[in-house]
Design a protein around this nucleic acid. Structure first.
Length: 274
DNA sequence: TGGCAGGGGTTGA
DNA sequence: TCAACCCCTGCC
């Protein structure tokens, strides 16, 4: 069954290297990291994901092997940019990150490049997470971070983001913002709830919704995606407002807009010269 | 080796 | 609409 086989399509390097998650480490052909508190080692063999350490069902859920890629690709608009992105990114999957670590990581990502976001994530894990296997650390809980001082977090090279992460951790730890409750809300209500946290605006909230809450229609617009939209979809049109870009992306890319966004983003970031 | 520009965002005026 | 917030990376 070509369809069933294709639905299993999976590309580990693209999935972990596309800027949706930052703490995985390459070791030879394998990738090593933690899924929550589960230490995991995975490899690509053919089109398949192979688990060499960690619970199989945890890994398969995290890497979203049940996402219907065929159906997702078929839902995309058939324009040149989208087709090129699908060809370039085939097998890339939006993973299911634990909500808090996803949200917190994107709070620390503001105006940062991938290398630095990864460095911050590793420092926070090593200093305040739990060592779940030799050299592998979980992301610190809201309560753990809430007990720290802003100075502690600034020592992790967070800069002005320290205050935001601390404030968010305290609001989540105290129950003032309940992530489980947010997970039960509709997309717009959940986004509004997340935006109550310091350091969380529309972009960070949409990243959290897409990568941490499984809302596959969420469409984060960062500077790269804004360039893509303006260059490929609004060519020769000046004065296109941010609001217009939001409205366009929400309707044009369909129910799996988050996938479309990640494919356009990854394709552009690796192929466009600046 | 050192100096400098610029960066995946949010906030508040 | 725009400056301020911080400081690390990459490039010259």
């Amino acid at each position: 069954m070509a369809g069933a086989e294709r639905a299993l399509a999976f590309h580990l390097d693209r999935t972990l290297g596309c800027g949706q998650v930052f703490h995985w480490r390459r070791e030879g052909d394998a990738w090593i990291g933690a899924i929550g508190n589960e230490p995991v080692r995975v490899e690509q063999r053919g089109e398949r994901l192979t688990v060499t350490a960690g619970a199989e069902h945890v890994v398969r859920d995290y890497f979203a092997l049940d996402h219907p890629l065929d159906e997702i690709y078929a839902s995309f608009p058939r324009d040149d940019a989208m087709c090129a992105a699908v060809e370039f990114c085939h097998g890339l999957r939006i993973v299911r990150q634990p909500a808090w670590e996803c949200l917190a990581t994107f709070i620390t990502s503001a105006m940062k490049q991938v290398a630095h976001i990864a460095q911050i994530s590793h420092t926070l894990r090593e200093r305040y997470g739990a060592e779940v296997a030799p050299g592998i650390f979980s992301y610190p809980s809201p309560a753990r971070l809430a007990a720290l001082s802003e100075a502690d977090l600034r020592e992790c090279k967070l800069g002005f983001r320290a205050k935001n992460l601390l404030g968010a951790a305290r609001m989540v730890a105290s129950g003032e913002v309940d992530l489980d409750h947010a997970a039960a809300l509709g997309d717009d209500e959940a986004r509004a709830e997340l935006c109550r946290l310091p350091g969380v605006g529309e972009k960070v909230a949409n990243c959290a919704l897409l990568f941490g809450f499984g809302r596959l229609a969420a469409f984060p617009i960062d500077v790269w995606i804004e360039r893509v939209l303006r260059d490929l979809y609004f060519r020769r049109k000046r004065n296109v407002t941010a609001r217009r870009l939001r409205e366009f992306s929400a309707s044009y890319f369909g129910p799996y807009g988050g996938y479309a966004q990640q494919y356009l983003f990854h394709h552009a970031r690796l192929t466009w010269s600046r």
